[in-house]
Amino acid sequence: MSEKKPLLEISNIDTYYGVIHILQQVNLRVDEGELVCLLGGNACGKSTTLKTILGMVKPKVGKIMFAGEDVTHQNTPARVKLGMAVVPENRRLFAPMTVLENLKIGAYVRGEAAEEDLERVYELFPKLKERSSQLAGTLSGGEQQMVAVGRALMSHPRLILMDEPSMGLAPKLVEQSFEMIANLHSQGVSMLIVEQNANMALSVADRGYVLQTGRIVLEGEAKELAGHEELRRAYLGR
């Protein structure tokens, strides 16, 4: 974590939905091996930032660099091929397909899924191995989260984008979910987490950004942010 090589760097992004200006001059950076969290309340543009990074929404101005390439004008599959992977909001598993098929689709950009990749995911989440032939829609929320993360890992991503990993999970599962994130991070996986649960996110992250109505209003080390008076009042409820 000392080499400080930027993996993802977005600079001066402006994104519009029609005439509505969503993101204004957003700058954001994720270094190799870093865990960065993007915090903010409802409708402040967190998910839009993620969609812009992934290429589902195109910015009007600005530049997105990923893994040393300018990906601003590339489409989503091309970016996934370069090494982005997403754990979408609400997980969005393919419900009538089996767990195994869901995992395999994660490796789509790499061709047919390799056996050792599957083994790696099963090692991380042993529960998925016994459930591999079960339909993804019949899993519980926590298990679905495992599949979603496993699916993202299948593409050998250089950066995992997580959209609200705590959404729709019981408090205990939220804790487990973040334990898992910390675990992945310790294995050297770079991650950008978009989260409303600032407390949880800051407890595992290296750095953080705070987004407010489409602008980055704060950035800094996670520890600093966790101690920031204003932020605490606004988001941590303490």
Binding site: R92, M97, E101, A107, R151
Partner: peptide, 24 residues
């Protein structure tokens, strides 16, 4: 049973999610 068949079915279920998995 190949990735093509799987990808077809993901489009049926959720095209947006499929695209974000890298499915063209």
């Amino acid at each position: 049973r190949t990735r093509i068949g799987r990808a077809w079915r993901t489009i049926r279920e959720d095209a947006l999610a499929a695209e974000s998995m890298g499915v063209m």
